[in-house]
Each structure stands twice: as structure tokens, then as C-alpha cells.
Design a protein around this nucleic acid. Structure first.
Lengths: 243, 243
DNA sequence: AAGCGAGCTTCACATACCCGAAAAATCCGG
DNA sequence: CCGGATTTTTCGGGTATGTGAAGCTCGCTT
């Protein structure tokens, strides 16, 4: 179980990011579905620390720039994302598709950074979102980088339910991993969402990370080899900088 | 009293912004001066929501870009700061000094936005920080914009202790406010910090806000009239956009 | 390989917090 | 200027949560 008030702080942040306007105490309480009294305490805490301000008397609260200032400092010093950022942007520009950096968390894939495609039809994902390992190109790349014992333990906990007609079961997944190993690139062609295609590659950077290129299935399939090559070079660039 | 775990989430954010590197559970617990067990719960909550990730196995946690992504959206839609931003930057460039946007919170001044000077010796303040009204140019401007009754109530709660040799007592403050009213500009010349000078002006924007130009005392005093004029024009520009 | 030290995790109890209800303040239409 | 509706705030009890101690895991050193 998680810490209730800690989670609520995140809820508040997300509520403001979603609403994009000042919220009164009761509006916020309604949005978060919590009692007004609890919401008041929460707002007071955040306002007292300089993270919220009252826009006008009774005109609702809005976050000050303090959160953004802190987040900017934090973002600039991320040990992994900051290092990979240039190469990920270059990869996005070269492929024209959305690029994702991720790692394993438990038996899920955690998205650490998303560099969005500029095309009008594009893959969109939220930083911090998670995906199931078994139906995700990044998941496959991350699984491939694990030693077999750890992979077995992990896959034992996974529930292989079909997301689309193309979703693999455990046996098919292991065959796919083996087949992809030689190529060094791991695909997900419509296995999680019907029209979504992606290719990924593991990254050796301290611990195990992975990078993917994702977009509409047809576009990804058509340019698979070119993207794979671009991905390979991008990963080499990221890994190379440190060694 | 504030909500403990909510405040701790802010502590965590500030700790990472200050340390600028991954922190293990026990390091964070030490920095925040809280029990390890409590810190673990907190980290799990934040990590579970995708706001923290483990950089390497046992290698410490670091915030993902999720916080930054949310903060960026929030910052772009601030009803006050977003509107004033251009004019504040222009004012900074014109005066060469740090510019601050603030409002009243209780009997303190709350800094909403800070646009830093680019000079090597400059005034620095943190967004979200607070200052006493009675020894602050923004505080004076905000007091001046209040009706006399409200001002009396507010000043009754203020403790007039001297920060420097130049700090005013209540009588001197009221004389200063009156004298400044005509000019429309409110000064703080070494009243809070010996070498700090600032001039401020109230802003009529929904509720009462104020803008200041601050820097080393000598520089501010030397360019007082020029800065006052620049400040006047900047405020007019901000107020004008909406009406 | 084994011991050691640091860090992580679990557990049960005591406390501070969350909640519902009621009061106070504020707003709005008349 | 008044009365009803809405929002904000206060308050005290029940309970989820924070805490300290103990056990466990991991990595490092010898």
C-alpha cells in the first residue's frame, strides 16, 4: 500500500497539469474525490511551502513556478536521460518516429524519456508510464539482456493475456526472443495495440536500459531495416560516450 | 499543522534538486532526517507512480522526467506568470538586474517568478520563497495597494525587528509609503540585507501583484530613475494586455 | 569462501492524520 | 440590504500511517 498523502500530492500536480487552470479547494476536492477537509490541509501544506498560490481571493489556487524550477534542475542532472538525450533526439529526427528510453521495473517496462515524432500521426506515451514486458518491444529487449534464470523468474509472474490478435504467449515470446537475438533488434508489430509497431534494442549503460522507435504499424514495417540501423548507431553513440 | 507525508514529497523533490545525483533509500533518509522505514514507503509510492526510478540495482533512485513534464504543462498555463513573462524578461534585459513578480500571502511576500540578472554580481531569489512585507520593496508596493483598514490589520501582526541598520519601524514605514505613493515606486535600499537595493511597483491584474527590480545597492541607487521608468512601462505593458 | 558491515525490508504498536458533521464565512440574486 | 446556497473552516474521534527494533540480503574485504 502506498502513502496516501504522498500520492495525493502527485494527484494534485496531475490535476493541475490536466486542468491547466486555477482550482478552488472544493473543485480540487471534487476532482481528486477526497473530502474537502483533507483537501484543505493538503492545499495549506503545498501553499505554505510556496508550491501553490491563491490567484485571487477566492479565485482558486495554481502552482507557482517553484515546482518547475526544481524539476528543471533535476532534469538537467539525470545521470541517464541527460546523457542519452542528444542521441535520442538525433534518432527521432533521423527516423521521424517517436523514440522512447526505458528500463525494467519489477515485471513492467518503465518509460524514462519520450522524444515525440513531429508527424501528425505519431505514437504518444507519457514519461513515467509503464507497459507489460511481454507485449512491448522495449520489454523484449530488456528481457533479452537478462540472464536466463532471472528471465524465467520474471516471466513466471507475467500473465499472458492477449491484447490483440497478434499478442504472443509465453512459448511464442521465447521463440521470438531467440530469433531476434542474432539481429540485435526486438520488434513489436501490433502485439499490444493493433496499429502500433516498434523496434527496440537493449543499451548497456550501468544497468540495463533500452531504446525503441515506435509509430504506426505500416510506417514502421515499411522502414524496418533503416530504423534498425539508425537504432543500432544511436545505441552505440550513447554507450560510447561513457566508455 | 501541515500534512507530514505531503511535506515530505516536497522534501524529496528539493533533496534531489539540491544533491543532483541518485540517492539510495538510506541516503535520502539521512538527508531528510526521517526513519528508513518511512523513507522506504515514500520512495515506493513515488516510484510506483512513475516519478522515481532505480538507476541501477542498489544504485540509488532518481526522478524520472515525469515531474518535469507535468511542471512544464503547468508552467505554460499559469494565468499570471505566463502573461507577465515577456514583459519581465524585457525588463530584466533593459535594466540588467534581477526582476521579481510577487504577491501577498498572509503577511508575507510570496515570490511567484524570478527572472535573474545576467551580471556576475546579481540578486538571486528562489521562486516560492517568502519575505517580510515591512522590509521589502515588493511588500511596500503591495501594502500601498491595500485599503488602509486592511493594511492596519496586517501591520498589527508584523513584528518590526531590525534586519539592518536601515530597517524601518512602523511609523517610518507608513511615512515612507506615503512619500512613495506620489512617485508610484517603492524602494528598499539596504533595509533587509545591507548590500541589497530594490524598487517595486504594484500591478493591477485581477488581484494585487507587484513587480520589482533588485540588485547590489550601489548599482540600483545609481540608476534609480531609469529603472523606475523601465518598471513603470513594464507594468503598463502587463496590465494593458488584458484590458 | 566466509565473515563483516551497510543497506533494505518486515512487523507490531502508538501516534498523528483523515474524515464526517457542523459552524462560519462568503457570494449572489432579488 | 437581506436570505439562501455554496464554499471554506473548525473540531474530535477512529484509524491508517509513521516509527523503532529486529531480521534479512547484498556486496566487499580478507
Amino acid at each position: 500500500m502506498s502513502v496516501k498523502s504522498a500520492a495525493r500530492v502527485l494527484d494534485v500536480i496531475e490535476a493541475f497539469a490536466a486542468e491547466r487552470r486555477p482550482l478552488t479547494m472544493s473543485e480540487l476536492a471534487r476532482i481528486l474525490a477526497i473530502p474537502g477537509a483533507s483537501c484543505l490541509e493538503l492545499i495549506r501544506t503545498l501553499a505554505g511551502r510556496g508550491y501553490l498560490y491563491e490567484v485571487e481571493r477566492r479565485g482558486g489556487f495554481y502552482p507557482t513556478g517553484r515546482l518547475q524550477a526544481q524539476a528543471a534542475v533535476i532534469g538537467a542532472h539525470d545521470p541517464i536521460v541527460a546523457r542519452a538525450s542528444d542521441a535520442l533526439h538525433a534518432l527521432r529526427d533521423r527516423t521521424g518516429e517517436t523514440v522512447v528510453l526505458a528500463r525494467l521495473r519489477g515485471h513492467e517496462v518503465l518509460y524514462l524519456d519520450v522524444v515525440e515524432s513531429r508527424q501528425s500521426v505519431r505514437y504518444i506515451a507519457e514519461i513515467g508510464a509503464t507497459r507489460p514486458v511481454q507485449a512491448n518491444s522495449l520489454g523484449k529487449a530488456l528481457l533479452a539482456a537478462l540472464d536466463p534464470a532471472a528471465r524465467d523468474v520474471l516471466l513466471a509472474e507475467v500473465e499472458f493475456r492477449p491484447f490483440t490478435a497478434r499478442t504472443l504467449d509465453r512459448a511464442a515470446l521465447e521463440r521470438d526472443l531467440e530469433a531476434s537475438e542474432e539481429r540485435g533488434c526486438y520488434c513489436n508489430l501490433g502485439e499490444s495495440v493493433p496499429d502500433l509497431g516498434a523496434i527496440a534494442r537493449p543499451l548497456r549503460l550501468g544497468d540495463r536500459y533500452a531504446v525503441s522507435v515506435a509509430g504506426p504499424l505500416a510506417r514502421i514495417e515499411a522502414a524496418l531495416d533503416a530504423h534498425a540501423e539508425a537504432l543500432r548507431e544511436a545505441c552505440a553513440a550513447i554507450e560510447g560516450r561513457d566508455s
